[in-house]
Design a protein around this nucleic acid. Structure first.
Lengths: 327, 327
DNA sequence: ATGCGATATGAAATCGTTTTCATGCCATCT
DNA sequence: AGATGGCATGAAAACGATTTCATATCGCAT
């Protein structure tokens, strides 16, 4: 089988305890340390993490649960998370829920069984009610979507501010019939919708929001009907970049020019939003910051468990492009 | 501390062995099984995976090492991998190498320490020489990039065929001065370059290839100069979607219209390649198939270790759009 | 010279499971 | 009736590390 610490000990002529100390931190004479290192090289020894975890009760693993890694927002965040983990010498277990509460529950269970050191979680809407009941024995940092207040640390975008910015921008460009298309699966969609509706009212306008399943195809289907309706919007606020793709497709299929027939503003500053004609006005989320900050919160809480629950609200940056030029 | 199998055993009035058998598969009377299940619910017991792994010598974990999860190709593949793993009741550890051999080596080491059940790896170029030396005690499936022949199972795109298709297509559209831009970090870039050069010669044309670091920004810089050169290409074959973005930016910055001044063909059928004006002619890679197939190869090899080494070569699909219209 | 503290090392316990081995029981066959 | 075999169960070993506890050695102060 695999070579164990005992084999190394024998090869080095010392006890297993000494090998462990030489490899970790512990008082070992330089002489023995050298012997151990030589023995490690000679035997090709690699510590067994399962055994180490079992004994030291520290998994050195952090869980990352997102809706779908193919959503560019989560892609970028996960990359930042993985980087932080690597630097801290920790591992990342990646999980996609597809916004499915059962799958999420199953992954939360897994996190317990793995005895993860911490968890970065983009909760489904269902877990909003589940989380408080569920007793977790590791720190959790929520990203993208805040959970029940005061329960877990979180890093979120200021969605109200972002939507207000977009609405104000569209209004300033002369648009009045501004619709909103939001994902129906996440609390982020809901928050952006609320922000949108509040902003619209503040401008004395009537909100006109629709919800859709969080995929380009679903968004395209939803828009197909909507754009044919007599009271169709002249401008559209779109909750994320996947939906935005569906919107653009639907607009083109309906023969509507952007922005002349339909202005469009969205979220997530993907490279393509600049390349497409016209460029898309979007709110850029600080994706790397979100991932990094989430990991910082996690590490700080690990170091100081007594810390009060913190919610970090980051501002997006509005990038204006041709898709919202005045009609 | 956490509740262990002993606590459950006590609560159920049975031995730990019986609890283990009741929860796994093993002969247990229905009566005791019910008692155990009740005790599990009562105590909130969750098995400790570290302990289970240590004893059963099966980590139930597969490693996934890619260059950068933000490359849409790897994003899609990783999602397929995670799905397969979930269905098989296994976990996925995600690692990004950034094409850095040291980081890759460190992650390979980690895979050993985790005693992973299997590994899906997109090897860096350096590992082409390293892999044969390195002794691995778990099955490895290479994706996107084949390693030294006959060593590991692999799933790759038929790069020669794909590039030949693109070159033939461009030629049929009347282009002669066809350049090629390829990533310098991966063997995929190298293969596509070779395929491109071979195809060019077959058509009696002179290849004109350039290499660049695998990022949009680097590609843009490289193109900036190239497009100013007197003998600049009239058409361009681009090795992946990140580079493609850089190419489009550079073309626009140089005031070159696509395809009138510069035809462009690339890889990876991202949504945006259809939305951008003109649409991009690309080779669509069967990303989900690649991920799924990789996992299948892995599982088959686990079941039947004696299997000969297999290399699955999948064909891309050429999607013709406006970016390669005749000049 | 003696005792004491510090320090390096080894022996053994421990982490929480699974698995082997032993045991007792019951049914079945000769 | 006694031997045999199968089956459910429990006791205990084992997985491979870390950590606690005990011990030997050494230097130094008394």
């Amino acid at each position: 089988m695999s070579v164990s610490i005992k084999d190394v000990a024998r090869a080095a002529g010392v006890s297993p305890a000494t090998v462990s100390r030489a490899l970790g931190r512990g008082p070992v004479s330089d002489e023995l340390r050298a012997q151990v290192e030589a023995a490690v090289r000679a035997t090709g020894y690699r510590p067994n993490l399962a055994a180490r975890r079992l004994r030291s009760q520290d998994s050195g693993t952090i869980g990352l649960i997102v809706a779908d890694i193919r959503n560019p927002f989560f892609t970028a965040v996960s990359r930042a998370v993985e980087d932080s983990a690597y630097r801290a010498g920790m591992r990342v277990i990646l999980c996609n829920t597809d916004e499915d509460p059962d799958r999420e529950a199953s992954y939360l269970q897994l996190m317990h069984e793995e005895r993860v050191t911490g968890l970065i979680l983009a909760p489904t809407r269902a877990s909003y009610e589940q989380l408080p009941k569920r007793q977790v024995d590791f720190p959790v940092v929520l990203i993208d979507r805040a959970g029940p207040p005061g329960l877990h640390d979180s890093v979120v975008l200021d969605n109200r501010e972002a939507t207000a910015t977009l609405v104000a921008h569209l209004v300033s460009r002369g648009y009045r019939q501004i619709g909103g298309l939001f994902g129906n699966a996440s609390s982020t969609g809901a928050e952006r919708r609320e922000g949108y509706e509040a902003a619209m009212r503040q401008h004395g306008l009537t909100p006109d929001a629709r919800l859709t399943a969080p995929s380009s195809a679903a968004a395209q289907r939803e828009m197909q009907d909507w754009l044919r309706a007599p009271q169709r919007p002249r401008a559209l606020l779109v909750s994320n970049s996947l939906l935005l793709i569906g919107v653009i497709r639907a607009a083109r299929a309906a023969g509507l020019r952007i922005p002349q027939d339909l202005a469009v503003a969205g979220f997530d500053n993907e490279s393509w939003t600049e390349l497409v004609e016209p460029g898309m006005t979007v709110i850029e989320q600080p994706v790397e910051d979100i991932g990094r900050t989430a990991m910082s919160l996690l590490f700080e809480r690990l170091k100081t468990p007594g810390l009060p629950v913190r919610k970090v609200v980051l501002s997006g940056r509005c990038i204006v492009r041709g898709s919202t030029d005045a009609a």
